[in-house]
Write a protein that binds this DNA or RNA. Structure first.
Lengths: 223, 223
DNA sequence: GACTGTTTAAAACAGAGGTTTCAACTGTCA
DNA sequence: TGACAGTTGAAACCTCTGTTTTAAACAGTC
């Protein structure tokens, strides 16, 4: 059934997955054609439909390949944090770190692979707009529910509604920065330095942590 | 040259612009075909190339149509705020309001048009990734420079670099929420209520204002 | 009414997209 | 060897894309 040993010569299926990941990250899901992918992977066009069934399912496969381990790690980190605080509320900063760090740790390759993967995850959150393959949706919902609950315990002074929206705001910062981080660096060339991915994500967490702790109704009292 | 009176019967050019705006907002720039647009507008396919020259230029026209007045209003509001504070630094909240309020005020129509326009602007910031038509790019750059400067004066304790990044983070929240706000409401159906656009944007400003005032290096001192 | 320039309509164009077909080629098992 | 499931390669299929062409309809003006 499966090839099994994938040491010496990588299988076609695997090569397609890797090529697709890079191209999707670089240009987007809908713009990249199957011929782009297969020519980069050194495979035939028909191979995609043979191995995956359709382009849409290839996209799903690429998403699933990374989303599953990252989400698992997120839940694990949140578990650890909750144990560390022994049932008490986990600080917002640690919750956000549990959300973002697995993304970073999942990156093992060099500079270029970092950029690609970041853009890919950014697109996943941004371009596809929370629409996920069915195979990973339950896991995503479970994760979202876990993080939502943890955040509500972390900022009990906020209404459930407000906490939820601020969680979404944080996702927005992350998605947008992951996707356009490279462009932003070029735009602000020199002025905004050239922070590493790690530093950048730490700044995101600083920003969002403070955002979460904003007073509940500051806009009401003082126009 | 121009039609001039556009009261009784809207011209083809105008109908195409409106149809395009709605469809672009709903589905994205690259996915919508000219035939989608023209059939909705009740016009012929060739009309697009006749009136605009190409699809790309049609996109530019749609962008320009809204971006220009909104950006002008943004600058004007920032001017007013700066006069109000007589040369002193303008509070972050007011700067962010000057950035977002023109977007809201530009919306005059009903519920549906609000959603469409919000999504459109969201896509403009998100999907096209800071890549703008040449005709409006100078104005955007001028605006970005103005807001950047104002924010640096508002939070002088931050390095120029950090202030710039936090400005980008704020853009990210805005873009993401504008684009996916509708989806988010559905996802969190009931739990997250159904805030109006105005309330939602006020919450964004609360969040980002607090994010801007986060300490410069909180991640360093306490791991 | 014939001559302008402008606008619309229908059809055709060339190209690219995802998908399918089918023959050729692997390897394994009998 | 032969049979057979699994896999690949080249080509074709059909649809849809943006664009162009061509001719007809329209508004004015002399």
């Amino acid at each position: 059934m499966a090839v099994g040993s994938s040491e010496e010569k990588t299988g076609t299926r695997e090569r397609i997955l890797e090529a697709a990941e890079g191209l999707f990250a670089e240009r987007g899901f809908e713009v990249v054609s199957l011929r782009d992918i297969t020519s980069l992977a050194g495979a035939n066009v028909a191979a995609v439909n043979y191995h995956f069934g359709s382009k849409e399912k290839l996209v799903d496969a690429v998403v699933e390949r990374h989303a599953t381990p990252v989400n698992r790690k997120r839940m694990a980190m949140l578990d650890e944090a909750e144990e560390r605080h022994a049932g008490g509320p986990v600080p917002v900063r640690e919750i956000l770190e549990a959300f973002l760090n697995p993304l970073i740790e999942h990156i093992s390759g060099g500079e270029r692979e970092q950029q690609l993967f970041c853009k890919f995850m950014g697109r996943l959150m941004g371009e596809r707009g929370y629409r996920l393959p069915e195979s990973v949706e339950p896991m995503f919902q479970a994760m979202a529910a876990r993080f939502s609950l943890a955040l509500q315990k972390a900022v009990p002074e906020l209404s459930e509604e407000l906490a939820l929206w601020r969680m979404h705001f944080s996702f927005g910062v992350m998605a947008n920065t992951l996707m356009h981080g490279e462009t932003l660096r070029q735009i602000s060339a020199g002025r905004a330095g050239n922070p590493t991915v790690e530093v950048l994500l730490e700044r995101i967490i600083d920003f969002c942590t403070a955002g979460f702790h904003a007073p509940a109704e500051p806009g009401r009292g003082d126009g």
